[in-house]
Design a protein around this nucleic acid. Structure first.
Length: 418
RNA sequence: GUGGGUAUAGUCAAGUGGUUAAGACAUAGGAUUGUGAUUCCUACAUGCGUGGGUUCGAUCCCCACUACCCACCCCA
């Protein structure tokens, strides 16, 4: 119990860390190239921010939050997503008073109390971007394009971009009513889950997996037919921009986001290669969120991308991250005097920026070489009494199995050259 | 929260109601004290997820619990 990580959490072990570094570095690179700046926000926020931002009626707020009181009586919550905190920071630091739009990216650990399964953890990690301060659909296209290009650069082949519009509060309310009216005569035939969804979130019924419900829903009205003029033309604009950029997409009128703040554009990058949780990246526009949490009425758009799911996809696509190999030199010593000399040498190598290691288990010579080989050391420096007397060391090239005698004074030059 | 599956060493695993629970890999040490491979030798579960029960006897049968995996729900 004590020696198990908490349910739904995972250690990233030393032999896997390089894969994470690779993803982080690539994301960093592409965001900067597209003109986004990194932001780092706290791992917890005021509970009220999340309630207002994500929405009181969402599953996240109702049953998935890690909420606690601190000693000052404040209710705090481990962030379940990255957008609300980013918006909060945007408002708090009056970033709207700077050049607009504000383009941000982040790498955030997020927390949701859910039952873990493939591609779902209680602590997971989201790479995300946000654009604040423009209602223009150019921003939506920019964000989607970044997501697409990132996945492409990561070598992910089998993802599909699906887009939809969830409208604005006005037209969504009208649609919702129309949908409920359509569903009403069939209510009793719906599955139990969908009976619950009827009031809470009828749009969910559209993508229910039950075949019976699918039959009912076949001729249901679609959000896209109920968009108000503004929302409809916005959706056309997004599609035009995506076309102009040459991005392939599928309009999926049944995309419903589980967070309340979305308006107009909603999109997902979906794969069927990583189990049931196939959405590797999801996002959309949220024109009212900023105001909702008490800030000025500033629109925004962004996405969250699951790092763990991306890593799974990379594996499915057989994309290998370059391994990091920090071992340049291993110092093999024989005898106490040589050990002293080795220690001295080790420090000098480190100070010169060369990665070097020595044995700390009192291994014999053979053991030290074996160990050096296991560490993938490229060179070994061998010191024994004979060498000490002559003022030299043996430098061995581990790949070529060649050894040469080098005077103390020339050690660094020889190492550097190789 | 609801289902389904799994549980033997660091890892992969075989196994049987009955004396010392296979094997492989990994790890550590060694093969006349100065060199990585191969080979050979040695060490490595009084223990079979935990707690009960049945039995003369349980790793094996029964019950409960826990953990992990997968799926629903929902999402990244």
């Amino acid at each position: 119990m004590l020696t198990n990580a908490p349910k739904g959490t995972k250690d990233v072990l030393p032999d896997q860390v390089y894969r994470w570094h690779y993803v982080e570095k690539k994301f960093d690179d592409i965001c900067k190239r597209y003109g986004y700046k990194e932001i780092r926000t706290p791992i917890f926020e005021h509970t009220e921010l999340i309630n207002r931002g994500v929405g009181d009626t969402t599953d996240i707020v109702q049953k998935e939050m890690y909420t606690f009181n601190d000693h000052g009586g404040r209710s705090l919550t481990l962030r379940p997503e990255g957008t609300s905190p980013a918006v909060r920071a945007f408002v708090e630091h009056r970033m709207y008073a700077e050049v607009q739009p504000t383009k941000l990216y982040y790498d955030a650990a997020c927390f949701r109390y859910e039952k873990p399964q493939s591609g779902r953890l209680r602590q997971f990690h989201q790479l995300g971007v946000e654009i604040f301060g423009t209602p223009n659909m150019m921003a939506d296209a920019d964000v989607i394009c970044l997501g697409h290009d990132f996945l492409e650069e990561m070598g992910i082949k089998d993802v599909v971009l699906e887009i939809n519009s969830v409208g604005c509060p006005t037209c969504r309310a009208i649609y919702r009513k129309a949908l409920q009216d359509f569903l009403k005569p069939h209510y009793e035939a719906l599955c139990d889950t969908c009976k619950g969804r009827y009031d809470r979130n009828p749009m969910r019924i559209l993508d229910c997996k039950s075949p019976e419900d699918q039959k009912i829903v076949k001729d249901a009205p679609e959000m896209l037919d109920y968009l108000c003029d503004d929302c409809a033309s916005s959706f056309e604009e997004v599609k035009n921009h995506l076309d102009a950029m040459g991005l392939e997409y599928k309009v999926n009128p049944r995309i419903v986001r589980g967070l309340d703040y979305y308006t107009k554009t909603a999109f997902e990058f979906v794969s069927n290669k990583i189990g049931a949780q196939g959405t590797v990246c999801g996002g959309g526009r949220y024109d009212n969120l900023c105001q909702e949490i008490g800030g000025p009425p500033i629109p925004g758009v962004g996405f969250g991308l699951g790092k763990e799911r991306l890593l799974m996809l990379m594996e499915a696509n057989e994309v290998e991250a370059p391994e990091e190999d920090p071992s340049d030199v291993f110092i093999v010593t024989m005898g106490d005097n040589a050990k002293t000399k080795g220690l001295e040498l080790l420090r000098e190598l480190h100070k010169k920026g060369i990665s070097a290691q020595m044995d700390t288990l009192s291994r014999n010579v053979k053991g030290q070489f074996k160990y050096a080989a296991r560490l993938n050391a490229r060179k070994t420096i061998v010191i024994g009494d004979e060498e000490l007397e002559k003022g030299v060391v043996q430098i061995k090239d581990m790949d070529k199995h060649q050894q040469q005698e080098v005077a103390f004074a020339d050690i660094f030059e020889t190492i550097k050259k190789a």
